[in-house]
Design a protein around this nucleic acid. Structure first.
Length: 425
RNA sequence: GGAGGCGUCGCCUAGUCCGGUCUAUGGCGCCGCACUGCUAAUGCGGUUUGGGUUCAUCGCCCAUCGAGGGUUCAAAUCCCUCCGCCUCCGCCA
């Protein structure tokens, strides 16, 4: 949620900033007008209530004094009561309208984010072997390698749950668990490990910005009015909803290894082969909650943490600075980490490290006590510490050998219990 | 799933039966000031949250006693629905 006062007092700034995210000026102005209208309706309602409160107390005094005019005064309040009821209806409508408009507005992009859309994303740096070095050698896609090893079975996955689900066996399954364990151990010094529910209230989804606009992307359990989390970000960021935190206890750093559920509505058939895009996967998510004055530093550390995971796994990756028009709804700045997968010959997005400034904090009502005594929204950040399906695919493609076996990165050996994955017997 | 109990401004707590001086009591904690060589103790004052008005302060106004409705001139208090917690029973890993 944007700061209502900023939108009211400095509409031009908001219009200009959101234009970079592709939001039409009319949309912003509509929200501004809805806010202004709500404010004037509420103001009117409040003065009516003030009058009612004053005269009601007077009735009480007159009745206690046995004053005969009490009954007259009491009866005279009926009209005011009716007018207040009408104004309350108007106020409720104005408030709902303003809220709906505000929930539709995305976060402001950071001034430093590049202009333009997806085509204008900037590759900041690369790590590991260059893409060109893989030319001249034939790499098979992970679904072929893993299929032949007998550790990946998309056909039966479809039988169980429909298209877009994964089914892994033996070392394939164990590799997922190894990756999760590896990432948790790697980041355990910095982050508090959390095991949170995978099923949450809509309020939490709204807090992170996944609702109401993107309801079609998430799985909803209607019978209980609950949602399957699309990312561990949702419960971790939601931990402190409606709380006022002591600045002494900030920053808070949490991580969770969780399943993630995504309907991927609208993206069917696009780069979906193998494990590139699945409805359910496992991920270690990193979340930081801090004050605005430390957010930049926390952001850099978070990016560094996400990169460290890939470096330890010896996977070549690049850091992409997303252009304003390609930023997600709730973010102000995002650095994507993309791993090069030689089998599919593509850069796979494996982590999206984002700064959400106070946008999620406003939606989720997460505040801290400013030294002066006032409260202010905190800042939130998150990024994948390790997302298994695409990293899993990259490891299979990089480690494949001519005899069909797969050599895994050294750091995973203790977790997998072996250096080479061989065909399942 | 069933029965019962409970939910008050950081924590504990009074108030709810019987609606109006509740502008929500008291204690603890915390903040400020005074006293004091320092600390402690003591005294005085302040301390829910959100919004509005104001350049800002002070002040004033509105809402807020788990949430949402209802009754009433008036609701912490009466009625309804929901949520959460506790105890017992059932079921179960």
């Amino acid at each position: 949620m944007l700061d209502a006062n900023l939108l009211l007092d400095d509409t031009e700034t908001v219009v200009a900033a959101l234009a970079r995210k592709g939001v039409a000026e009319d949309t912003v102005l509509a929200a501004r007008d809805a806010l202004a209208n709500r404010r004037s309706v509420l103001s009117e309602l409040e003065s009516m209530r003030a009058e009612m409160n004053r005269r009601s107390k007077e009735v009480g005094r007159l009745m206690a004094a046995k004053d005969p005019s009490a009954e007259t005064e009491r009866a005279g309040l009926g009209d005011l009561k009716a007018r207040i009821a009408q104004q309350e209806t108007r106020n409720r409508e104005a408030e709902d309208a303003a809220r709906q408009e505000m929930l539709q507005l995305p976060n402001l992009p950071a001034p430093e984010a590049p202009d333009g859309g997806e085509a204008d994303n900037v590759v900041l740096r690369s790590w590991g072997r260059a893409e060109e070095e893989f030319r001249g050698t034939t790499y098979r896609p992970h679904w072929d390698v893993a299929g032949d090893l007998g550790i990946f079975d998309p056909e039966r996955a479809a039988k169980l749950s429909g298209s877009g689900f994964a089914l892994l066996y033996g070392d394939g399954a164990r590799l997922v668990r190894a990756l999760g364990q590896f990432a948790l151990d790697l980041h355990g010094e910095t982050y508090t490990e959390v095991l949170a529910p995978h099923v949450v209230r809509g309020q939490l989804m709204e807090g992170t910005g996944h609702l109401p606009k993107f309801a079609d992307d998430a799985y909803n359990i209607e019978s209980d009015d609950l949602w399957l989390i699309p990312t561990g970000e949702v419960p971790l960021t939601g931990l402190h909803q409606d709380e006022i935190l002591d600045p002494e206890e900030l920053p808070k750093r949490y991580m969770t290894y969780s399943a993630c559920f995504r309907r991927e509505a609208g993206s069917a058939g696009k780069d979906t082969r193998g494990l590139q895009r699945v409805h359910e996967f496992h991920k270690v998510e990193l979340v930081r909650i801090c004050t605005p004055d430390t957010v930049q530093q926390e952001f850099e550390q978070l990016l560094n943490d996400a990169e460290t995971s890939l470096q330890r796994l010896e996977l070549p990756y690049r850091v992409v600075d997303l252009a304003a028009g390609d930023l997600t709804f709730s973010s102000s700045r995002i650095f994507d980490l993309e791993v090069y997968a030689p089998g599919v010959d593509k850069w796979l997005e494996v982590s999206s490290v984002g700064n959400f400034t106070d946008f999620q904090a406003r939606r989720g009502n997460i505040r801290y006590r400013v030294p002066g005594g006032r409260t202010a929204p905190v800042n939130t950040l998150n990024g994948s510490g390790l997302a298994t399906p695409r990293v899993w695919a990259a490891i299979i493609e990089h480690g494949q050998r001519s005899d069909g076996t797969v050599e895994v990165p050294e750091v995973l050996v203790p977790y997998l219990g072996k250096k080479v994955i061989e065909p399942r017997g």
